[in-house]
Design a protein around this nucleic acid. Structure first.
Length: 648
RNA sequence: GCCGAUGUAGCUCAGAGGUAGAGCACUUCCUUGGUAAGGAAGAGGUCACGGGUUCAAUUCCCGUCAUUGGCUCCA
């Protein structure tokens, strides 16, 4: 007998050689039917693997992340089997579970997989799943494994196996299908009841642009049809929040092929919203001791040679602009820091002057690859809420903390609670990608790690994600469809001050080098607005929304009175419009609702006579009669609550 | 940049090798109304662009451009 300990501390005595499934059955048959995956002593195993000694056992169902992983990974095997049958000669490579579902990368030779084929693949998948074939893990020698794939001519699997140790190579079989696999499967294929092929895409072997491009088939599967239906409904809902769709509907921004791809055009509604965001941040920055500067959109190429940007990105940037006769070269600025360094140098600095903080909403232009452009989140021209802080080394940590506070303040005021803080360090294996000395990098990285910890930030560390001149603390949020975007960023930089020979005179009467902090709480106005749109599904906070109130006359007879009401409300700093169209009230209400206008005033004979306002709230309906003053208070109070939340 | 998909009216989309369609929006007229679409009429398209096949191409084929889902990249 062996002793099995469950996560809650309960124990079971079972015969040696019992499996995780036997453990599940000892708890209850019903539970066992849902168990699809297990860990024994922290190791993922098959639920059928015999357990020979006393062990800690954790059992998973589809409701657990581990269970989903096993389920989707197993589904990838079935997908591969289906692809082998439908596209003879495909070479299998890898097929992992991902956050939502799984994919399998195959080399299809000269065959292509089209969207029209998805149904066929799904049908074949279900046909195979219904065979209820057991998944069986078997150990093979390295030589045998290599022989199998060499015979098949599958260079990908051969490469994978060559990197594995003999003795730790396993194959997984189910039905007539075999794949190289280290395990973690559900008991049999029959548990997969629903499958949806989501998309096909090209993907480079080993994520390397210089290697072969494979066909990646994305899918998601479930143990019940109903779960798939629900998942697809959630996706549909997410699409409704897409900022590209809402941006068009709410007339916030647009693109024009004639202007150029990736160059957003802000429409009045969007421009006003953006200006309010800028005002909001300018106010906070003024309070935090930032000084505004304004610098041009282009700069002499030499500036970027000095900064190192030209060497790093010159080839993949918009190319220099030439003066007509002298042949001088100017670059559209891809960043604001070199300009700000020059601003710093206009006057000699004493240690008493530091820190200085130069802030600018600086518009920059970067040549992004065409396949990478995406709505407002990835564009070629955008405005950074940029600032550069120049401080003494002894001020660095304190300044860095203040910047963290500012970023958190901005996020909180706009309702971003679900973000991750990522510390982006340089890749020590690939130092050639970066400029500056090891010593400076070490200092900069430690400063970020230390201050983030002191601020109690929940951070993840990503090596290799640093900027070429310094490490970063990035604030990442997800968009409506689950893609992660970097918004705010704070960077510590010892290198540009050296390159631009920035100095200050210390108390010792010697010249010293300042440290620079680059920071942008929004990141880019474009991306921030995009994520904000998706975050609130177009229902902006009252202080940001283009129109706060729609005034709706019951008939044209009341248009003039309504215009007077609007004037009075304007005096209370409330903005809106009168719907003067010759339409019925129901229609005007509907249109205001669709435009997501927060408040609607229905004005007819009754209101004119009593001098009151009939107020509707977006998404709620009639909220009753208000005097003008009470309504103004209601609106202004809501604005203050949004804004002053944490504005001292 | 690479692999796939898409491109028809301002918007959302249907369509077929032979005279281009709908709904909404727009214009005009009727209607003057009470909490999510009042009625009628009208106007609006070189079917992304360039080639090719064909008696005939918006439709089929090729290329370009743009959009889009991924991959790679992201100062």
């Amino acid at each position: 007998m062996i002793k099995i300990t469950l996560p809650d501390g309960a124990t079971r005595d079972l015969p040696a050689g019992s499996s995780a499934m036997d453990v599940a059955k000892s708890i209850s048959e019903g539970f066992a039917r849902n168990v699809i995956s297990a860990k024994v002593n922290g190791e993922t195993v098959e639920v059928t693997t015999p357990i020979t000694t006393d062990a800690d056992v954790t059992l998973f169902t589809f409701n657990d992340d581990e269970g989903k992983k096993a389920f989707w990974h197993s589904s990838a095997h079935i997908l591969a089997q289906a692809l082998e049958k439908l596209y003879p000669g495909v070479k299998l490579t890898i097929g992992p579970a991902i956050e939502n579902g799984f994919y399998y990368d195959v080399d299809t030779g000269d065959q292509t997989i089209h969207e029209a084929d998805f149904k066929k693949i799904e049908d074949k998948f279900l046909e195979l799943a219904r065979e209820k074939a057991d998944f069986n893990l078997r150990e093979v020698s390295k030589a045998d494994a290599l022989a199998k794939y060499k015979e098949e001519g599958n260079e990908y699997k051969v490469e994978l196996i060559e990197n594995l140790e003999d003795g730790e190579i396993t194959f997984c079989d189910h039905s007539d299908f075999t794949d190289l696999c280290r395990g973690g499967h559900i008991p049999n294929t029959g548990i997969v009841k629903a499958i949806k092929i989501m998309s096909v895409a090209g993907a480079y072997w080993r994520a390397d642009q210089t290697k072969n491009q494979l066909v990646r088939v994305y899918g998601i599967s479930f143990p019940k049809q109903k779960l798939l239906t629900e998942y697809l409904e959630v996706l549909e809902e997410a699409k409704k929040r897409d900022h590209r769709k809402l941006g068009k509907e709410l007339e916030l921004f647009t693109f024009s092929q004639k202007v150029g791809q990736g160059l957003p055009l802000w429409l009045p509604n969007g421009a006003m919203l953006r200006e309010r965001l800028e005002q909001f941040l300018k106010k906070a920055q003024l309070k935090a001791g930032y000084l505004p500067v304004i610098t041009p959109h282009i700069g002499n190429k030499e500036l970027y040679v000095t900064s190192g940007h030209y060497e790093k990105y010159g080839e993949d940037s918009f190319q220099p602009i030439l003066t007509p006769h002298e042949g001088e070269e100017f670059l559209l600025k891809p960043m604001n820091c070199p300009h700000h360094c020059e601003v710093y140098k206009t006057s000699p600095k004493s240690y008493k002057d530091l820190p200085v903080r130069f802030a600018e909403f600086g518009t920059v232009y970067r040549y992004e690859q065409s396949g990478e452009l995406h709505g407002l989140t990835r564009v070629r021209g955008f405005t950074q809420d940029d600032a550069h802080l120049f401080c003494r080394p002894d001020q660095l940590e304190d300044e860095f903390k203040k910047v963290i506070d500012l970023v958190l303040y901005v996020f909180k005021a706009l309702g971003f609670e679900d973000f991750t803080a990522q510390i982006s360090l340089r890749d020590p294996e690939n130092k050639g990608k970066y400029i500056g000395s090891d010593e400076n990098w070490e200092k900069a990285e430690q400063a970020i790690i230390k201050t983030s910890a002191e601020k109690g930030l929940d951070t993840v560390i990503e090596t290799g994600e640093a900027a070429f001149y310094g490490p970063k603390l990035d604030f990442m949020v997800k968009d409506a469809i689950g893609r992660k975007w970097q918004l705010g960023t704070i960077q510590v930089d010892y290198n540009l001050p050296e390159r631009f020979e920035l100095e200050y005179k210390g108390s010792d009467n010697e010249m010293h080098r300042p440290v620079m902090i680059h920071r942008a709480p929004f990141g880019s106005m474009e991306r921030f607005v995009a994520v904000l749109i998706e975050h609130c599904a177009g229902n902006f906070p009252l202080w940001l929304t283009p129109d706060q109130v729609a005034i709706l006359p019951i008939s044209e007879k009341y248009n003039e009175s309504c215009k007077n009401i609007l004037n009075s409300l304007n005096n209370y700093d409330i903005r809106g419009f009168v719907d003067e169209r010759n339409e019925k009230i129901g229609r005007k209400i509907r249109d205001a609702e669709v435009k997501k206008v927060p408040y609607m005033l229905v004005i007819g004979e009754k209101e004119i006579e009593s001098g009151s306002l009939a107020v509707r709230r977006h998404g709620q309906g009639d909220i009753g009669e208000f005097t003008e003053k009470d309504f103004a208070d209601l609106v202004n109070q809501e604005v203050q609550e949004n804004l002053n939340n944490n504005n001292n």
